[in-house]
Simulated assay, not measured.
Amino acid sequence: MIYTITANPSIDYVLQVDTLATGKVNRTTTDVKLPGGKGINVSRILNELQLDSTALGFVGGATGSMFENLLKQHNLKTSFTKVTNDTRINVKINATKQNEETEINGTGPEISAEEKQSFLNQLKSVGNGDVVIMAGSLPQQVETTFYLDIAKVIKDQGADFVIDTTGQALLDTLPLNPLVVKPNNHELADLFNVTFNSEQDIVDNARKLLDQGAKHALVSMAGDGALLVTKDHVYKANAPKGQVINSVGAGDSMIAGFVGTFMKTKDPIESFHEGAACGSATAFSQDIAVKNKIDDVYKNISISQLS
């Protein structure tokens, strides 16, 4: 079983306007409310790939109920920890004629010690053969070491984990041997406080993640494609041609495609191919990509071995 953790989920209120004028009344052309959160995006892609997953996280209040109702439209299996405070709302404003996107993200609910422990207790059900994917920001009052606490529980239970976060929170979990980590090239540069002057620089720094314990490193590079660094080899996926409509969720989709395929095949190259297809397909879509779109994009991606 694959479990996804979205510690700080959201309702994403996406507004389309022709132009955005700050300090004035603006009227939308369209609007939509979507269930947001990086782990939720992963579960939605896994669902498109006809792979089972269970979405975990914290939800609360009236917005939490609304969030769960939105998820029911996507037929996702969930097992959320209920909290007292409200699930957050993120507002995303797309000004089409200005070709600009503005985001206003909520901070999320405060989580009590009891609510946190209740969540950790749920993880006692994972075991050998399971993979737990942790992704996204943390709610208020949750220590920055929370992902490390989760990783320790998962490893003690004999399961694998994937972490999609940045900074020290990522580095702290590397000695516990995550199945895959996925920074983009800018996040990787910030992680080691360096500037990249070549693709080889990116590869060399991705190898540092493996040296510190990661089993695989995926590095997305937007229009320059993506890299997969394994213990023995480096592979590159091209960036397929297409109009980028919305990059939100593309990285989550890549992780879903990689992990879901790896669970079935144990083949990192095929997993990379599927992951790259899922990531690009979502970038070319208004929302998380659907299976037909993923299959179409897959045909336009090739994987080459660099070393």
Results as ranks from 00 to 15, higher is better:
Ser271Gln: 03
Val259Ile: 13
Phe161Leu: 02
Leu46Asn: 10
Ser137Ile: 07
Lys236Ser: 05
Asn184Ile: 12
Met66Tyr: 14
Gln122Leu: 13
Asn197Lys: 09
Gln157Thr: 14
Ala256Arg: 03
Leu174Tyr: 08
Ser247Gly: 02
Ser220Leu: 11
Ala226Leu: 08
Ala214His: 09
Gly158Val: 09
Gly39His: 02
Val83Pro: 04
Pro9Leu: 12
Gly275Val: 08
Pro35Ile: 06
Gln243Tyr: 02
Asn8Ile: 14
Glu101Gly: 07
Met254Glu: 14
Gly167Met: 04
Lys208Phe: 03
Asp172Gly: 02
Val142Gln: 01
Ser137Met: 12
His74Arg: 02
Ser112Met: 06
Val153Met: 04
Gln16Asn: 15
Ala276Leu: 03
Lys38Ile: 10
Val180Glu: 01
Ser304Asn: 10
Ile154Tyr: 00
Gln286Ala: 15
Thr107Ile: 15
Ala239Gly: 12
Thr96Gly: 01
Asn69Tyr: 14
Ser79Cys: 05
Asp252Trp: 04
Glu274Lys: 13
Gly108His: 08
Ser43Trp: 04
Arg207Gly: 06
Asp204His: 09
Ile93Phe: 03
Gly167Trp: 05
Ser125Arg: 07
Ala214Cys: 08
Leu46Lys: 05
Asp149Cys: 02
Ala159Val: 11
Leu71Ala: 12
Phe146Tyr: 12
Tyr13Met: 11
Lys72Arg: 14
Leu191Gly: 01
Asp12Leu: 10
Arg207Cys: 05
Pro183Val: 15
Lys24Val: 08
Arg207His: 08
Phe284Leu: 07
Glu199Ala: 14
His233Cys: 11
Gln212Asn: 11
Asp130Pro: 01
Thr165Ser: 06
Thr19Phe: 12
Asn99Ile: 00
Pro183Glu: 14
Thr261Gly: 12
Asn47Leu: 01
Ala281Ile: 10
Lys24Leu: 07
Glu274Ile: 03
Gly260Ala: 12
Thr19Ile: 13
Asn121Cys: 06
Phe161Gln: 02
Met263Ser: 11
Glu100Gly: 05
Phe146Arg: 13
Gly127Ser: 15
Leu51Thr: 11
Glu187Ala: 01
Lys97Cys: 07
Glu115Arg: 06
Gln305Glu: 13
Ala214Pro: 02
Gly64Glu: 14
Thr195Trp: 00
Gly223Lys: 08
Met1Leu: 07
Phe284Ser: 10
Gly223Val: 05
Gly106Tyr: 15
Leu20Trp: 02
Ala283Thr: 12
Lys266Glu: 10
Ile154Trp: 02
Ala189Lys: 09
Gly167Gln: 01
Ile104Glu: 01
Asp201Pro: 00
